[in-house]
Write a protein that binds this DNA or RNA. Structure first.
Length: 320
RNA sequence: GGCGCCGUAGCCAAGUGGUAAGGCAAGGGUCUGCAAAACCCUCAUUCGUCGGUUCGAUUCCGACCGGCGCCU
């Protein structure tokens, strides 16, 4: 009997996920659901490494260009839409496959977030404005009493914890204990990761290719159309390119800043995958290995043995 | 050739006669509605080299090496 678990291709940025996914989707009638928190934004194309028009023509994609750059998106919203996209793909006779680098989005789909009690939007907006004025250490102090289990997290999570506690009277940490209304979705993962050293090289190459492809012009255009505080500008590298263009920094420094930001992002992704996917059905894959194609095939078919995720870059480099 | 300044971690950089700030980078970690985000932790037994003074020198003295500047 066929393995019906949802296929997820995941990995750090610039590792070669899309190439693997396209190859699989083409051979097996798949559809790609992009789990990427930046490719959702229209107009931010080159720097987010969106699939090209040719690639979009080869394989049906979902999740690309679905939001306005000034919209605040969320993992929960993505997961909701992803369920619809999956159904749509199936209806068209396609096998949906999730591919992307935003682990949190994937998780929100596979292991749904807690059910947030309804909140009054007007009060919520007012509270948001108030909380925004608090310095982070102050906010943390609040959360230490509002929801102590969340007080060690970053500002974004502190805001959320405070908001839920204040508006619903319930702690997120308590809400977690109730089973979410949406059922979990069994999944298995193909982790594409060429290893620390190769990944660095690939990142540099990709950044250079982005500039060569006219990224600067794209950013110049976006600067005219998208307000500077819009969420889409958070895509790593975009702010650096924008500042360089606006402030006349030299191109070399901008290129360097983008490479560094991308590298740091890739590192966070690898950490996330290493720890948050521990215990899941994971197949780790170096795209440069000679048997890559065969192993990717085997993974699709469900024949590949899984391995513990923390073994995932063993052998690729030494001294870790 | 002479004179002056400088030489502190991968990079930038503070510093004191009493046992090396900080920033960047890097590495590790957190993660339940902003996640390419937001956070947390770790990172010089040692201050160009060799001697000297001193209870004690990265800090003072000398020589040497290296860099920069000026003069001839």
């Amino acid at each position: 009997m066929a393995d019906v678990r949802l296929r997820v291709v995941i990995g750090p940025t610039a590792a070669g996920k899309s190439a693997a996914a396209l190859w699989l989707a083409e051979r097996h009638g798949g559809a790609i659901l992009s789990a990427d928190s930046r490719q959702i934004y229209r107009g931010f194309d080159i720097g987010t490494a969106k699939p090209t028009a040719a690639e979009l023509a080869r394989v049906p994609h979902y999740g690309v260009d679905v939001a306005d750059p000034r919209e605040r998106y969320s993992a929960a919203r993505w997961a909701d839409e992803a369920r619809r996209w999956m159904a749509d793909a199936v209806q068209r006779g396609r096998t949906p496959m999730v591919v992307g680098g935003t682990g949190f989005y994937v998780r929100a789909l596979v292991a749904p977030l807690f059910d947030a009690p309804p909140m009054d939007e007007a009060r919520r907006a007012a509270l948001e404005r108030l909380l925004a004025t608090l310095p982070s250490h102050e906010l943390r102090r609040w959360v230490r009493t509002l929801d102590p289990d969340r007080a060690h997290l970053g500002r974004a999570q502190l805001l959320r914890a405070a908001e839920v506690a204040l508006l619903t009277g319930r702690r997120i940490s308590a809400l977690h204990r109730a089973p979410p209304s949406r059922p979990p979705l069994p999944a298995r993962y193909l982790v594409i990761d060429p290893g620390h050293e190769r990944l660095r090289q690939r990142i540099e190459q990709r950044v250079d290719a982005m500039f060569a492809a006219g990224w600067g012009d794209e950013v110049r255009r976006l600067m005219r159309q998208v307000p500077p505080l819009a969420p889409a500008w958070n895509a790593c590298g975009y702010a650096a390119v924008r500042d360089a263009l606006a402030g006349g920094h030299d191109a070399r420094a901008a290129r360097e800043a983008v490479v560094v930001a991308t590298r740091q992002y890739a590192k966070r992704q690898r950490t996330w995958i290493r720890h948050q996917l521990a215990g899941e059905a994971v197949t780790v894959m170096d795209p440069a290995s000679p048997d890559a194609a065969a192993r990717i095939e085997a993974w699709w078919a469900g024949e590949e043995a899984t391995q513990p995720v923390d073994a995932h870059d063993g052998g690729v480099e030494a001294g870790r």
